[in-house]
Amino acid sequence: MAVLKDDTLPIRTSEDVVRVRKEVRVQAIAAGFGIVDQTKIITAASELARNTLDYGGGGTARLELVQNGARKGLRLTFEDKGPGIPDLQLALTDGYTTGGGLGLGLSGAKRLSNEFDIHSVVGEGTRITIARWK
């Protein structure tokens, strides 16, 4: 699998979340995504970027434009040095929230992606990687 483009954006404020959405759109278009796939990956990115900000106390978003054979895709990695998630199973349940939201952030982002990987250590931080293929 080849990486065609690789950018990292900071997530410190809610304006940064908007910037992540904008940049994901640019990359999704570069990957040749149709309008629905674009919307899905941007929405997933928005959920995860907001989680990084609200629960992780800020962090980074890494955007990679990848190619696997004839297929292009987008791989996004959100990383923070926040408190971490003690119970991943619970955090991935629809409707579960600690922050007063709808609790659809993680589970929703998972449904909107083709690949989803989460790695979290309590006290150290959380890293979530999603990918969507054309």
Binding site: I35, V36, T39, K40, T43, L104, G108, L112
Partner: peptide
């Protein structure tokens, strides 16, 4: 609401 937005919202669970 645009079609792509509607599809995504449903998938999201809203």
């Amino acid at each position: 609401m645009r079609p792509a937005v509607a599809i995504t919202l449903v998938e999201l669970g809203l």
